[in-house]
């Protein structure tokens, strides 16, 4: 198998090597990829949408359908992960570990026993428990708000600098993940429950699709944001810029919620009790 794979890879590789001789030289400004459609985007994007970052302008305005269905793919991936993994069964033994904080004694309570509430005295712990780490937890508590503010900046400033809904959404999700790793999965789920994560991911897709439908309601094409000029009280060019911002916020919410959902399900194998 190893030999067959190697031979196949070498054959395919040499075919591709032969094909690469017909490519234009690397960095050629007159190459076919750079000479048909993209000059229009580069020269006209500023006049059409007043967005200096060409990638954002093309992403959310000229190729809005593409991005909308990409967002739906991400949403579908989150739902698929829940369908595959989420289970409501207890673990085989059904027992839980609790720690009595003043004395430091660990109690194992069986399925039939009465589980105490989480309080100052009793704390539920994971089976792979590590002692309370002051440095990690304090650093995480200090750094999470800054990560979230940076993510909001990335979403809001995507028009003028690298960034946008996808990146900002992933960073927001990563802030939640770092919280879940430094503390534990249950406290992260208390902050942002599974239900609200799913609701937020569908809300993000709804904002995107709803903006498109709103444009249709004002008599122009689907996702033609210049239709929103009357509603926002600005000229059509600025309206396209604002429409891009609205759509990016939708993308950011959806991506953030899906990343968090994926992490919850993967880290606990669908049981949502013990995390990484």
């Amino acid at each position: 198998m190893r030999i067959v794979g190697l031979i196949l890879v070498v054959i395919l590789g040499s075919v591709l090597f032969y094909g690469s001789l017909a490519f234009p030289p690397w960095g050629d400004p007159a190459s076919p990829a750079s000479s048909h459609l993209s000059p229009y985007y580069i020269e006209k994007a500023m006049e059409d949408t007043s967005v200096p970052n060409l990638v954002t302008a093309v992403l959310a305005d000229y190729r809005g359908y593409d991005t909308m269905f990409e967002t739906i793919v991400i949403f579908a991936a989150g739902i698929a992960c829940i369908v595959l993994l989420r289970t409501f069964k207890e673990t085989e033994s059904g027992s839980r570990l609790y720690r009595h904080i003043p004395t430091g004694i660990t109690l194992k309570i069986d399925k039939k026993g009465r589980f105490p509430e989480d309080s100052v005295v009793f704390e539920r712990i994971d089976s792979h428990w590590v002692p309370h780490d002051l440095i990690v937890k304090t650093t995480c508590r200090l750094i999470v708000p800054f990560i979230q503010i940076f993510a909001l900046y990335v979403i809001a400033h995507g028009h003028h600098s690298p960034g946008g809904g996808f990146q900002g959404g992933v960073i927001l999700g990563a802030a939640m993940i770092i919280y879940a790793i430094a503390f534990n999965l249950r406290s992260a789920i208390r902050r942002m429950s599974e239900r609200s994560a799913v609701m937020l991911s569908s809300l993000g897709v709804f904002i995107y699709a709803g903006t498109g439908a709103l444009c249709m309601l004002f008599g122009l094409n689907y996702l033609d944001y210049s239709a929103l000029a009357g509603l926002l009280g600005v000229d059509p060019v600025t309206a396209r810029s604002h429409g891009i911002l609205i759509v990016e916020i939708g993308v950011g919410i959806a991506v953030m919620a899906v990343i968090v959902t994926l992490y919850y399900n993967l880290a606990s194998a669908g049981r949502h009790d013990e995390g990484l």
Binding site: A33, S34, L37, S38, Y41, I42, L54, V55, V58, L59, R63, D66, T67, E70, V73, I74, A77, F166, V170, V255
Partner: peptide
């Protein structure tokens, strides 16, 4: 050319 960047940006997130 910004067009490949746009296509690949969405591809990474997907």
């Amino acid at each position: 050319n910004p067009l490949p960047h746009v296509l690949m940006l969405t591809a990474i997130v997907v």
